[in-house]
């Protein structure tokens, strides 16, 4: 980010950047075995960029962890200590979103997979890229979110957070999820990517891709695991993804935005929210809150 301080005051992005760095340093200083949850999404990418700033010139003092649902195409080697975890039960039982529904799929691969990975490596703190503006129930999430030994989130046990003092202490078996991007909005993230020239994965850019339309969502047909329903034929359309968090549960949108500023323009002029394409949010009323209590990020 630009290092000249104009008008002796920081811009909103400089303030957000500094706050995120402060949060990450507190978290690392108050934990034994931190880890950063890393997906291929833009929020993860920005979080990783901020982490490099926070600990420069030292290397990252924690590994990155990716919970593999075997669906995302992983970013190529990026030069950090990288752990990939796959829930073996899901592989064995062949859990997939089309036979088992989006709810069970996410629960088994992501929620269970994450819990198993944290237990397996005995991580006591995990950074996540969630933002408060994403969904109504997240507006009250703390920056440091305490989880029980069973990884449960108890809304009544969350600690008040004042000033920039964070309480990272925890009992045996408990862990903390830390959200350095809590106060960023979707626009802030995109603007920062533009300002800092951060590379993001191609799925965000429009390209001709094979899709089918299902329950109002455009679902990409990537390989033969995606079984077609009677009457469905994939057609090639120019589409892109606004969010990748739960791919393939995320619907694509029709778009011709094939570069960064075009994406931002499209985002600013759009009239539907970022999470609209996520099937899990629509599963049931209050579903995100329920997922959080069970240990979903």
């Amino acid at each position: 980010m630009t290092t000249n301080i104009e008008h002796t005051r920081l811009t909103h992005l400089q303030r957000l950047e500094a706050e995120s760095i402060h949060i990450m340093r507190e978290a690392v200083a108050e934990s034994e075995r931190p880890v950063m949850l890393y997906s291929i999404g833009k929020d993860s990418t920005v979080m990783l960029h901020l982490a490099r700033k926070a600990f420069h010139p030292a290397p990252l003092p924690f590994p990155l962890l990716r919970i593999d649902t075997t669906w995302e195409r992983m970013a190529e080697e990026i030069g950090f200590e990288f752990i990939t975890y796959v829930n073996p039960e899901c592989v064995e039982k062949g859990i997939n979103p089309f036979d088992h529904g989006s709810s069970l799929h996410t629960d088994m691969w992501k929620t269970e997979g994450l819990k198993q990975a944290l237990d397996h490596y005995r991580f006591d703190l995990a950074f996540g890229g969630a933002r408060r503006d994403e969904e109504k129930s997240r507006a009250k999430e703390r920056v440091f979110s305490l989880r029980s030994a069973q990884h449960q989130w108890d809304p009544k046990q969350q600690r008040p957070e004042l000033w920039r003092i964070y309480n990272g202490r925890k009992g045996p078996g408990e862990s903390v999820r830390v959200f350095p991007l809590s106060n960023w909005t979707e626009l802030d993230v995109w603007q920062y990517i533009w300002l800092e020239n951060i590379e993001i994965v191609p799925l965000y850019f429009a390209a001709p891709r094979p899709v089918v339309e299902r329950e109002g969502n455009l679902i990409m047909v990537e390989d033969d695991r995606m079984r077609l329903l009677p009457g469905e034929t994939p057609e090639t359309r120019s589409v892109r993804f606004r969010t990748l968090g739960c791919y393939p549960l995320t619907g694509a949108i029709e778009s011709t935005a094939d570069n960064l500023t075009a994406i931002i323009r499209e985002m600013l002029l759009t009239t539907s929210s970022e999470r609209q394409g996520r099937m899990i949010d629509h599963d049931q009323d209050g579903s995100m809150e329920k997922k959080k209590q069970e240990g979903y990020f």
């Binding site: 408060r132 109504k136 129930s137 507006a139 009250k140 809304p155 009323d285």
Partner: peptide, 27 residues
């Protein structure tokens, strides 16, 4: 605005929520 299910059911807000908006000049 109301976030958590328990709050919606009781018709009250019981915790600090953070909201975001921006204009041409400020966030």
């Amino acid at each position: 605005l109301d976030g958590l299910t328990a709050e919606r059911e009781q018709g009250i807000t019981i915790d600090v929520a953070y909201r975001f908006f921006s204009t041409e000049r400020r966030k």
